[in-house]
């Protein structure tokens, strides 16, 4: 683990794996909750957690402390499992089946059997990068991104599963659709998925 300065008021803490990033994120949230860390934003990502808006004007001490800290294991999820009902009818289902070397039905079965967790969010409000599929099921992005991906599309890219909160361009391989509302700013909380949320996909008939 190493902590890189990002300007004067932020640190980027870097680890080696998705799991370590999730453990680090949980640990930093715990430190903030208990008052030993004062920071405005804690932003997890694939291999890093960004601490932005540190109160400490010289974050080098925190950086040194984090660089030698031992990571506790990922704690069990503090939140209830979010179940997302999916019709496995996406336009890239056949392509993913071919990449996986299984039938389209089997893609649905494998995907719905996995236990997911939101590793981080980004790209759009409410868009979560979910990990949980075994590494061998990683897929590349589409060579040519679609100009429009409908809201509710369930897609795969690299090791991640994601659900498009709203219609947008996108290059993920689409395997299904859901009616779940990923983002509604009039709702509390606005985001259905936030970092650390455990998620299961529940197949429904097309």
């Amino acid at each position: 683990m190493r902590a890189l300065p990002v300007g004067d008021r932020a640190l980027l803490v870097e680890v080696s794996t998705d799991e370590e990033a999730q453990a680090l994120h949980a640990d930093l949230l715990r430190r903030r909750a208990e008052g030993s860390l004062s920071v405005r934003e804690i932003v997890p990502a694939a291999r890093t957690v960004l601490l932005d808006g540190l109160d400490d004007p010289s974050p080098s001490r925190l950086a040194a402390q984090l660089s030698t800290a031992r990571l506790p294991p990922v704690p069990p999820p503090a939140k209830d499992v979010v179940e997302i009902r999916v019709r496995y009818d996406g336009p890239d289902l056949a392509a993913v089946a071919e990449l996986w070397g299984v039938s389209p039905d089997e893609v649905a079965r494998i995907h719905a059997a996995a236990e997911f967790r939101v590793a981080f969010c980004g790209f759009a409000p409410g868009f979560g990068y979910l990990t949980g599929l075994p590494a061998r099921y990683g897929v590349p992005r589409r060579a040519t991104p679609r100009t429009t991906v409908p809201a509710g599309s369930v897609g795969l890219a690299g090791p991640y599963t994601g659900v498009y909160p709203r219609s947008s361009p996108g290059g993920w391989q689409l395997i299904g659709t859901t009616d779940a509302v990923l983002w509604d700013h009039a709702r509390v909380p606005a985001a259905l998925l936030s970092p650390g949320t455990p998620v299961r996909f529940v197949p429904v008939d097309s």
Partner: peptide, 10 residues
């Protein structure tokens, strides 16, 4: 580079 958090002024 794996996606990582971005700050204002980056």
């Amino acid at each position: 580079l794996p996606s990582e958090g971005m700050v204002l002024g980056a």
